[in-house]
């Protein structure tokens, strides 16, 4: 990662901006959402990827220590995923590196989703909001 950051330092113009956007390891509620209802029916446990966060943070820290970049700003926001079905959700989460474990099992989520859909006449979607880091750095000239 540090080597990659050195490469980015090289291709950036003087005072160029490096933006690091990435989801943070966390436990995110899975919510069933409709115009009438908002109910938590499960959770995506992403805490198993905390080592990735630490490695990324360490690489950035090293690039700052080397004098390649100066930290300018750091913030977080919620990145929302919406799905029509549990199958869609598990399929997409399975492709994502931050994806770990969906709790409870898919069959239980499916049952809860169908019950809510029946109660509210359909139109119930699934939502997961992931806390996401956005950090900004300015290219510096090492002394």
């Amino acid at each position: 990662m540090v080597h990659a950051l050195r490469g980015l330092w090289r291709v950036l113009a003087e005072h160029g901006t490096l933006v690091d956007v990435r989801p943070l390891s966390s436990q995110c509620p899975v919510e069933a959402v409709s115009a009438e209802a908002l109910v938590q029916i499960g959770e995506v446990d992403g805490t198993g990827m905390m080592a990735d966060d630490a490695a990324a943070d360490d690489a950035i820290r090293q690039s700052v220590d080397h004098g390649w970049f100066v930290s300018r700003r750091k913030t977080t926001f919620d990145f929302a995923f919406y799905w029509d079905s549990v199958a869609e959700m598990t399929s997409m989460l399975g492709e994502r590196r931050r994806t770990k474990q969906v709790i409870p099992p898919s069959a239980d989520l499916e049952r809860a989703h169908q019950e809510l859909s029946a109660r509210h006449g359909g139109g119930v979607r699934l939502r997961c909001r992931t806390p996401t880091l956005l950090a900004v750095y300015e290219k510096a000239i090492p002394r």
Binding site: R10, V11, G16, T17, V19, D20, V21, A56
Partner: peptide
């Protein structure tokens, strides 16, 4: 990176670090 030095004003690490 297959680019010359100082080619870009902004580099975005998009969920990739």
């Amino acid at each position: 990176l297959p680019f010359r030095s100082a080619t870009f004003d902004i580099a975005v690490l998009a969920w990739s670090l």
